[in-house]
Design a protein around this nucleic acid. Structure first.
Lengths: 191, 191
DNA sequence: TACCTGTGTTCACTATAGTGAACACGAGAA
DNA sequence: TTCTCGTGTTCACTATAGTGAACACAGGTA
């Protein structure tokens, strides 16, 4: 939705109501908002208050944010990427990094495979606020440091942490380590 | 926040404004909402319209939903789970499933390791609407079917799909397959 | 001590949200 | 053809959002 105007939520409310086969009368009963008001809102004739929209969301049993963000039609995804299509990020002396997730997932949910050589370190700068990383140790042992917290995790282990602070993955052993990494961003819907 | 009352957003707006060291005057200029109104909103003396809160969110450069959901203080996570602490889900003749993510991540982001025997199938019922699965094939080859779409994915490959329809992972080969699986749910904030 | 400034609050007003009631319209039945 | 019913829209009203201006208060300075 455009960022130049407040969200037009009338159409969204109408769509959700229709999807649930509800009349204005029924939604009025469920939500505590008058039928007249609902009609005006759906026609974008008025600019309702937060409390009113919250009541409608409750009546529809949906999240307030589902109404506000515009109720975009979700198309079900199906996307597969072969091994030879993944992107490889290598730096001299650094770990071997394969990007598995497609470009359209960037800054939403990113998936990587990392291979850390014996006695190597991968240090990253803080990501966007609220971003989280989830690591599965496939082989070897790694030590993860995020801020003042750290843990050594062996094969078959799992670690998750906020990565909006400087964070480091180290392989202090004499064997290579392989790690599956997922990075999840807090989404911004309209900035 | 309580689901019995509309969201009290005044305190949230005030906190964000203070965090950014802004005065009411400054926010009024940036947002186009009067200082008087801002004061009333922050004091929970009025129930602002959606458009007004949207203007404030823009002025603060935050998501509308950040204000509405209550601006909870985020504590940075750090959680590690050793291999011997993961939960194993096995059924007779079924795949070997290890749950890596901790219980508190249930229905948010769930992480699994799957091992499918030669010529075996894992069929799942539809999950909650909007839920997505992300598979990394660590070894072997699997065929993923979601609704009418399918793909055979070899070692090192990746596949993602909506799993709010019946979906199946098959290993039609004579070798075992190992798959890393992430399940991401669309969050409900207050239902 | 008095004055000034910055910041937040309240007043008195206008504009608009929100409602109960009445109206408009289309479809189906008699 | 007329009537009835269900559903959505609009009217005329009250309640409240939203504002410019004035006020209140605290801290700093002369």
């Amino acid at each position: 939705m455009s960022t130049d105007n407040p969200p037009l939520i009338g159409a969204t409310i109408k769509k959700i109501r229709k999807d649930q086969s509800l009349t204005l009368d029924t939604l009025a009963e469920r939500s505590g908002v008058s039928k007249a008001m609902l009609s005006q809102i759906e026609s974008e004739k008025v600019n309702p208050t937060i409390a009113t929209v919250w009541k409608i969301a409750r009546g529809l049993e949906v999240e307030l944010n589902d109404i506000i963000k515009g109720g975009k039609e979700r198309v079900r995804k199906f996307r597969s990427i072969n091994a030879d299509e993944t992107t490889v990020l290598d730096t001299a002396g650094g770990p071997h990094i394969e990007v598995l997730s497609p470009i359209e997932m960037a800054e939403d949910l990113e998936v990587y495979l990392l291979e850390l050589s014996p006695n190597s370190v991968l240090t990253s700068q803080p990501h966007a606020p609220g971003t989280e990383e989830y690591l599965t140790v496939l082989s070897g042992t790694v030590t993860v440091i995020a801020g003042e917290k750290s843990a050594a995790v062996e094969q078959g282990g799992f670690v998750m942490y906020n990565c909006d602070i400087t964070h480091t993955i180290r392989n202090d052993t004499a064997a290579a380590a392989r790690v599956h990494m997922v990075v999840r961003f807090l989404k911004k819907n309209w900035v």
